[in-house]
Design a binder for these strands. Structure first.
Length: 639
RNA sequence: GCCGCAGUGGCUCAGUGGUAGAGCACACCCUUGGUAAGGGUGAGGUCGAGAGUUCGAUUCUCUCCUGCGGCACCA
C-alpha cells in the first residue's frame, strides 16, 4: 500500500500501481469525469499512469489553468494527424505549446495554402469527435528508429537519436496515429474541445537554425472555453487597431517608401513627438551629469578595423567609396566616435567619470525580412551615451544609470520592466580574462542595485556583456529598449587612457548605455501603448479650436493665438463644415482637446472644451482654459 | 537572408486577355449648421518595375523591387 497526500493535507491509502483516474473515481464520479491529469509531487503526468510510491498529488481538472497546456499540446498532435490524413506525403517534426496556443512544423515539398487551414481544422474536429484515447507506450530506441525510418519520418529519427540514453522513448497513440512525445496528455482527443482555431502559416527552420531546411509551420490557438477563445481573438483585433504603422499613416506621423527601405520619413507631427522625446531626454541627461556631443556619420574604414566592427559587425554596415577610392562606413554605433573625443587631449583621473551623450543616427544593414515599421529599421537615432570611468567607479555608474533608466520608463507609464543579462557571445573581441572581469563587474553592480535579472546566454555585444531592459506595454507586449554594457575592450583597442593619481597611464572602463534605445522604436512603442491617444505633453497637436459658425472665426483665431502664446500647439479649424463633422474628424485624429466656440462663448469670453475619449463639455473662461491646458501639458520631469 | 502571401487614383478596396470602377479624402458651388459623416458638381490612375507569351497584357509566365505573416537576426 502507498500513502497519497492531497492538497488539503488529507492522506489516503491506496494500492501500489493505482492510477490518477482510479483515485479520482474513488472520490467521486463527477471528479473522475472532470479530471484530465494529475500532478505527482508537483509534476504533471497522465491520469492513466500508475503511481508506485507515496506521493503528494493534485488532480488537474479540465478548467484548471494547468490543463490549458495539455489542451494545446494535444491540439498540436491532432493537427499533425489531420495534416497527415489530408496530405499523406508530409513529414511531422515538432509541435510544442506556445503562449496562447501551439504550432506544428511539417516537412512537405508542396507549400500549404491559406485555404488548407480550413480543411485541416475541419479534419481536426472530426478527429476530436472520434474521441480516441491517448495511450502511452515505451519503445526501445531501435524500435522507434525503425518505425519512423520505415515511414520516411527522417526528422523523427533524428529526434529519437537526440533523446538522452537514460531516458525512455515514449510514444503516444491516438487511435491509428502515433507520435514521439514526452507527454503528458489528456485522457482522450475529445477532451480538447472545439475552442481552437488555426491562425497562420509560416516558414520556420528545422531546429531554429538558418543553416537547416525550411519547414512549414502552422500556428493555432486553443482555449478551454469558447469565451476564452473569443476574448483572445478580440484582443488580437484590438492589438491590430493599435498597430503603429496603421496609426502612423492615419495620424500623419511618418511614412516609408521603397527607395529607402527601413528608413523613416518623419512628417511634422511625428517629428514633433520625436523632438519632444529628445527634449525630455536632454533635460534628464543634463541633470544626470551628461555632456552632449556630436560625431561624424561617416568614418574611415581603418577606424572600424581598429574597433573590431569591420570584422565582427561588417555584414551589418553600410559603406561608401569616395572618388579618391577611400572607403568610409556609416556608423552603426557611436562608441568609436566618442572614444575619439575622450582621447583628444590628456585626461586626468580627476575628470572621471566623463559621460558623453549623443542623439546619434546610426545605420545598420538589417536583413530585409527583419524590417518592421518603426520597430526595426535600418537607420535610427539612439539616445546613446558612453561613460568613461575607473574600475572603482563602475558599480556606482551602473547603479546610477539603472536608476535613471527606470525613472524614465516610469515617466512614460511603463512600470513592468524585465532586465536580461547577456554574457559573452561567440563572435567577440578580447580575452576570456577580460570577459571574466567585465561580466563580474556588471553582475556585481546590478546585484548591488537590487535588480532582478534573468540570464540571456551568449547574447552580449561583441565587445562586452550587456543588460537589456525589456518593457511591457498596455496590452502586454514586450519591447526591448534600454541597454547597459560594460566594455573593457574598446578603450584598450583605441589606446584610450587617463593619468592616474600615481602619474601612470591607465585604461578607462567604458559603459555603453541607451535608455529609449532607438528613438524610432520608442515612438512606435508609445503609439501602440497609447493607441495613438497621446498624453497632452506628447501630443503633436494638443488643441484644435472649432468655431460653430463662420461669424465666430475671429474669436476662434483669438483663442488659438492665446494657446500658441502659452506654448500650446493649437490649430483652428475654419472649414465650412458642421460642428459634428469637425468633432468627428478631430476625434479620429485623437486630438486631446477640442475647444468649441459659438455665439455664447464669444459673448462670454469662454470656450467649450471636449476632451478626447469623453463626450462631456466643460465651459471655462479662456484664460482659465489656457492655464489648465498649460499645466497639464508639462512633461513629467517638469511637473 | 529563408518560406508563404500580396502590390489597382492620397486612403480602403472591387474588377477584366480588348488599355479601369466605388466609397472616403481633394477642388469648386450651395448650405452657417451646438459636439462623431448636410447636398451637388468636378478633377485625379502608363493597374509596383522590367522582360516574355499573345494580334492585343493591368489580367497569363519569369525576374527584380517593396510590403505583410512567420523563421533566422536585433535597438
Amino acid at each position: 500500500m502507498i500513502n497519497i497526500t492531497f492538497p488539503d493535507g488529507a492522506i489516503r491509502e491506496y494500492e501500489q500501481g493505482i492510477t490518477g483516474f482510479d483515485i479520482a473515481a474513488s472520490i467521486s464520479k463527477s471528479l473522475s469525469k472532470k479530471a484530465v491529469a494529475v500532478t505527482l509531487n508537483g509534476e504533471m503526468q497522465d491520469l492513466a499512469e500508475p503511481i508506485n510510491a507515496d506521493a503528494n498529488i493534485a488532480l488537474v481538472l479540465r478548467d484548471d489553468t494547468a490543463a490549458l497546456e495539455l489542451i494545446r499540446h494535444d491540439a498540436a498532435h491532432v493537427m499533425a494527424e489531420a495534416v497527415q490524413e489530408l496530405f499523406p506525403n508530409t513529414q511531422v517534426t515538432i509541435g510544442p505549446v506556445i503562449e496562447n496556443g501551439f504550432y506544428y512544423d511539417f516537412a512537405r515539398d508542396e507549400p500549404f495554402h491559406a485555404d488548407d487551414l480550413q480543411k485541416i481544422e475541419a479534419r481536426m474536429r472530426q478527429i476530436i469527435g472520434r474521441d480516441a484515447k491517448f495511450e502511452k507506450e515505451v519503445w526501445t530506441r531501435d524500435q522507434a528508429k525503425q518505425y519512423f525510418a520505415a515511414k520516411g519520418e527522417d526528422y523523427k529519427v533524428e529526434l529519437v537519436d537526440a533523446i538522452p540514453e537514460d531516458e525512455d522513448v515514449k510514444i503516444y497513440k491516438q487511435g491509428e496515429w502515433l507520435d514521439l512525445c514526452r507527454g503528458p496528455h489528456l485522457p482522450s482527443t475529445g477532451k480538447i474541445g472545439n475552442n481552437f482555431k488555426l491562425m497562420k502559416l509560416a516558414g520556420a527552420y528545422w531546429r531554429g537554425n538558418s543553416d537547416n531546411a525550411m519547414l512549414q509551420r502552422i500556428y493555432g490557438t486553443a482555449w478551454a472555453s469558447e469565451k476564452q477563445l473569443k476574448q483572445y481573438l478580440f484582443m488580437l483585433e484590438e492589438a491590430e487597431k493599435r498597430d503603429h504603422r496603421k496609426l502612423g499613416a492615419e495620424m500623419n506621423l511618418f511614412h516609408f517608401q521603397s527607395e529607402a527601405p527601413g528608413s523613416v520619413f518623419w512628417h511634422p507631427k511625428g517629428w514633433s513627438l520625436f523632438s519632444s522625446l529628445i527634449g525630455y531626454m536632454r533635460r534628464k541627461q543634463t541633470a544626470g551629469g551628461y555632456l552632449e556631443v556630436n560625431t561624424p556619420d561617416m568614418l574611415d574604414k581603418g577606424l572600424w578595423e581598429q574597433s573590431g566592427h569591420w570584422e565582427k559587425y561588417g555584414e551589418n554596415m553600410f559603406t561608401t567609396t569616395t572618388p579618391d577610392e577611400r572607403v568610409f562606413a556609416l556608423k552603426p554605433m557611436n562608441c568609436p566616435g566618442h572614444v575619439q573625443i575622450f582621447k583628444n587631449g590628456l585626461r586626468s583621473y580627476k575628470e572621471l567619470p566623463i559621460r558623453l551623450g549623443e542623439f546619434g543616427k546610426v545605420h545598420r544593414y538589417e536583413p530585409s525580412g527583419a524590417l518592421h515599421g518603426l520597430m526595426r529599421v535600418r537607420s535610427f537615432t539612439q539616445d546613446d551615451a558612453h561613460v568613461f570611468c575607473t574600475n572603482e567607479q563602475v558599480t556606482e555608474e551602473v547603479i546610477k544609470t539603472n536608476e535613471l533608466i527606470l525613472s524614465i520608463y516610469k515617466d512614460f507609464g511603463f512600470t513592468d520592466i524585465r532586465v536580461k543579462f547577456s554574457d559573452r557571445p561567440e563572435k567577440r573581441i578580447g580575452s576570456d580574462e577580460v570577459w571574466d572581469k567585465s561580466e563580474a563587474a556588471l553582475k556585481n553592480a546590478i546585484t548591488k542595485a537590487g535588480v532582478d535579472w534573468e540570464l540571456n546566454e551568449g547574447e552580449g555585444a561583441f565587445y562586452g556583456p550587456k543588460l537589456e531592459y525589456v518593457l511591457r506595454d498596455a496590452i502586454g507586449r514586450d519591447w526591448q529598449c534600454g541597454t547597459l554594457q560594460v566594455d573593457l575592450n574598446l578603450p584598450e583597442r583605441f589606446g584610450a587612457f587617463y593619468i592616474d593619481k600615481d602619474g601612470e597611464k591607465k585604461t578607462p572602463v567604458m559603459l555603453h548605455r541607451a535608455m529609449f534605445g532607438s528613438l524610432e522604436r520608442f515612438v512606435g512603442i508609445l503609439i501602440e501603448h497609447h493607441a495613438g491617444a497621446f498624453p497632452l505633453w506628447l501630443a503633436p497637436q494638443q488643441v484644435v479650436v472649432c468655431p460653430i459658425v463662420s461669424d465666430m472665426d475671429d474669436y476662434a483665431i483669438e483663442v488659438r493665438d492665446a494657446l500658441l502664446a502659452a506654448g500650446i500647439s493649437a490649430e483652428v479649424d475654419l472649414r465650412n463644415e458642421k460642428i459634428n463633422y469637425k468633432v468627428r474628424e478631430h476625434s479620429l485624429q485623437k486630438i486631446p482637446a477640442i475647444f468649441v466656440v459659438g455665439g455664447r462663448e464669444k459673448e462670454n469670453g469662454t470656450v467649450a472644451i471636449r476632451r478626447f475619449g469623453s463626450k462631456a463639455q466643460t465651459i471655462l473662461p479662456l484664460a482659465e482654459a489656457v492655464t489648465s491646458i498649460v499645466l497639464e501639458a508639462r512633461a513629467p520631469d517638469e511637473v
